[in-house]
Structures are given as C-alpha cells and as structure tokens.
Amino acid sequence: MAKEEKIHGIVSEFKTPKEIYHAAETFRDAGFKKFEVYTPFPIHGMDEAMGLKATILPWIILACGITGMTIGICLSTWSSSETWLFGIEGGYKMIISGKPDSFEGIYEFIPVIFETTILLSAFGAVFGMIGLNGLPKLYHPLFTHDSFAKVSDDGFFLCVESDDPLYNEAKIKELFEKAGGENVNQITE
C-alpha cells in the first residue's frame, strides 16, 4: 500500500503457558500498560500477571437479573388484577378456585418470576461479555501475522501496542529476548 501504515505493535511468540506467564510479569514490572496476551485457553493467574483490574461484567448481569425479576413480577401481578399498584388499572381479574390475585397471590407466580430473572441474567452474561470484548469484530491486525493462527492451537503470543506511553522498539525487543520470546515481529494496523 502506498499510504503510510500505522504500527499496531510488536508481537512475540512463546512456547508454553509458563513462559508467557513470566513474560507478562516482566512487562507488567517494566511499567507497560497497553500490552495483551493471546492464548489458546485462559491461563490461571494471568490477570494478576498482567496487572488487570476485575471485569465489570457481574454488575451488568445483576442489573439484567433485577430487570428480569421486575418484568416477571409486573407481568404476572398486573395481568391478573383488577386494580394494580397505585390505582393503575390492571389486566383482567381472573378468579380461579377463589384464589387471591395480584400481589396477594404472588406465590403462584414465583415460577414465572424465577424464569424471567434467569433468562435476562443469562442474556446479560452472554451479550455483556460479547459487548465488553468488542465482538463481533472479524478483523484484527494480528490476523496478518504469519503464525498467529496457532493462537487457537498451541501458540502463546504477547503483543505490546504502539500507543503504550513506554513504547520503544529497542527496549521491547530486549525484554522479549530476556523473557525467551521467539519470532519477534512488528505488526501494522
């Protein structure tokens, strides 16, 4: 391409989970923030090794779960009552075996409330995870790397991104060498 390409970062390949784990520690201790580890499976303790904060996903799931519960409660109590909360006109009062309706009869609505809570929490977990991860995103600069296909098999990669304030090619290459990284490459966007 004729126009100048932006550099994404420098990537290096490691052979084992152990090597990549210690490499991540090396970069964390050197003060790097914008670096990422790519592995075929999650590595135990990697979040600490990279110095990452906890994900906010549980809060998203909680919010979705509360929403689901509220929908379940409103749907079942409102639709079966004559006058709902705050004098709002209800759906259609249905007397079945003389049982109480609306909030007095809420015990029999618990299965429905439970299911809507679970359903929306699950949506929160899955779509929250996909959203937080910025997926679907079918292109990634690293896909242009020759051996990056191994990341879903048995390759372990560490990439230091060019927008890290400490980004310095020579320094990074030196750290890769120290940590035992092979196949050091510069990747463009």
């Binding site: 991540a24 999650p42 929490s121 977990a125 899955v126 997926l135 679907p136 079918l138 896909f143």
Partner: peptide, 20 residues
C-alpha cells in the same frame, strides 16, 4: 465472532461462563 484469545477477552469470558 473474531475471537483472538486475548487475555482481556478471556477474563470476561470466564466470568460469563461461570455465571451461566
């Protein structure tokens, strides 16, 4: 979905999986 195996992705992924 363009999965790369990035550790930041695995972090949310594992949390989502455990919650599910």
């Amino acid at each position: 979905l363009g999965w790369t195996g990035a550790n930041r992705h695995w972090q949310s992924y594992e949390r989502a999986y455990a919650t599910l």
